[in-house]
């Protein structure tokens, strides 16, 4: 006759991969909205991206409203 028993697995520890992923999203999002002056698109477009400032223009109003230096 087999006995059944319960095992409780605690998930209270925060997984390391989740912390790294969330920290990466935090840093990337902060850079995109607060600091990019053409850097990200320069990977594809080269120097033109610094003149075009696609992301800067897209995030311009939020950048000001959230307190980041813009101009």
């Amino acid at each position: 006759m087999s006995k059944s028993r319960g095992i409780t697995i605690s998930k209270s520890e925060v997984p390391l991969y989740a912390i790294i992923l969330l920290a990466g999203i935090f840093a990337f999002g902060l850079f995109v909205v607060g600091y990019d002056q053409g850097h990200i698109f320069s990977i594809v477009l080269g120097e033109d991206a610094y003149a075009e400032q696609f992301i800067h223009e897209l995030t311009h109003d939020m950048r000001h409203a959230a307190g980041f230096p813009c101009h």
């Binding site: 969330l22 990337f28 909205v33 939020m62």
Partner: peptide, 22 residues
């Protein structure tokens, strides 16, 4: 720029939401 503000809000919100979540 005005329309972009909504998307930028989402990106910034997700960014600080990640920090907040941790």
């Amino acid at each position: 720029q005005k329309g972009g503000q909504i998307l930028a809000g989402g990106i910034l919100g997700m960014s600080f939401g990640s920090l907040f979540g941790i």
